[in-house]
Simulated scan of single mutants.
Amino acid sequence: MQRYIFKLKDPLPAGTSDRIQVTWHYDYYDAPNNSTTNQTVTFRAANAQTVDQALTTTWTATTDVVIEKSGPTNPSNYPAAGGERTYKLRYGYQ
């Protein structure tokens, strides 16, 4: 859980409105598609009613995959037909 506090102008003039946008990135590779996170925002001011807002975010997972084939580049060194080849699979940001 993370908590962010934004201190606004004091006193807060009547009729004031604004928007706060928090952009974040998940740095791990273990969030399956359709995972969810819950956010709750509370706005408090001495001269205003407290406002709570809850939101659930559903994640869309994507995968970045690279398949690399390595081996000799000279035809005389190619393996025989049906011979063994080596492939390397990498995932995540390349």
Rank of each mutant, 00 (worst) to 15 (best):
W24P: 00
P79V: 00
E68F: 03
V65F: 08
E68V: 02
F43N: 10
Q53F: 04
L12F: 14
N34S: 09
T57W: 03
T37H: 12
D27G: 04
A61T: 08
A80R: 09
T73S: 01
V51W: 07
G92N: 12
M1H: 14
Y28A: 01
V51L: 02
F6Y: 15
D18C: 13
R19G: 07
W59C: 02
Q94A: 14
H25G: 04
M1K: 12
I20N: 01
N77D: 02
Q49T: 09
S70Y: 07
Y93H: 15
T60F: 07
M1Y: 15
P11L: 11
G92T: 13
G92K: 12
T73F: 00
E84L: 06
K88C: 11
T36N: 08
R3Q: 15
Y26H: 13
A31R: 09
Q21S: 12
D30G: 01
T60W: 04
T50C: 02
D30F: 05
P75Q: 00
R19P: 11
T63P: 00
G82N: 04
V22G: 04
G83F: 09
T37W: 09
A45C: 04
D64W: 06
S70Q: 09
N47H: 07
Y91S: 15
T86V: 07
P13Q: 13
Q49F: 06
A31T: 03
K7Y: 14
S35N: 01
I5K: 15
L89E: 05
